[in-house]
């Protein structure tokens, strides 16, 4: 808005009034600047939460697992096409996450034979704290750090834990904000695993 100086500070000379054309250009410039500012803010106001991704193609992601049998392996969404994917974003300092940790692990063990992949994304943790958490809950499905917090941002997560259910075609079919229970997990996965039914 400093640019307004230009128009504002010129005291028009009494002898030679401002030509109308120049004034119009000034008006347009000022309005355009204000419009840009308002436009940016309007965009900023739009809700950008994970819920808005429902029914959309899941954003691509890639993690390098740090735990158990998968340690060191890379997992990318593109490679998991054709599988139902449960993407869980968590952190070791999150109390709610600890409440669902064993539910997720048991579900993984039950659904692994049916081709479901559980992927854990460790948000804002140090590796030591993350590994300790994985060990404490004996979590065996692949978990890896969210490098650059990119997955958290791409999935527009609003906090931890958040769990995304992605169908075989890579579409997000359910977003769970907060911890999930076994019954709901079963229901969602059974729907996604039933051929021909895509809406859980």
């Amino acid at each position: 808005m400093v640019e307004m100086t230009e128009e504002g500070a010129i005291p028009p000379s009494p002898a030679r009034p401002h030509p109308a054309g120049r004034r119009l250009i000034g008006l347009i410039v000022v309005l355009a600047l204000l419009g840009t500012l308002l436009g940016v803010l309007a965009w900023g106001l739009q809700p950008r939460t994970s819920a808005t991704l429902l029914g959309q193609p899941a954003p691509p992601f890639e993690i390098t697992a740090i735990n158990g049998e998968f340690a060191g392996q890379r997992f990318a969404l593109a490679d998991l096409r054709g599988h139902v994917v449960v993407l869980n974003i968590w952190a070791s300092w999150c109390i709610e996450c600890a409440r669902e940790a064993s539910v997720l692990e048991q579900a993984w063990r039950a659904y692994r034979p049916r081709g479901v992949w559980f992927i854990g994304v460790d948000y804002l943790d140090t590796d030591t704290a993350g590994l300790a958490y994985l060990k404490r809950f004996d979590i065996t499905y692949p978990n890896g750090p969210d490098i650059g917090s990119r997955i958290y941002q791409a999935y527009r997560a609003t906090g931890v834990p958040e769990t995304f259910f992605i169908d075989r075609d890579g579409i997000i079919r359910h977003v769970q904000i907060g911890p999930i229970g076994r019954a709901q997990l079963d229901m969602l996965l059974e729907r996604l695993l039933t051929p021909g039914v895509s809406q859980p």
Partner: peptide, 10 residues
């Protein structure tokens, strides 16, 4: 917060 305590340790 806990996160920051971990970060400070790191």
């Amino acid at each position: 917060t806990e996160t920051c305590a971990q970060w400070r340790a790191k």
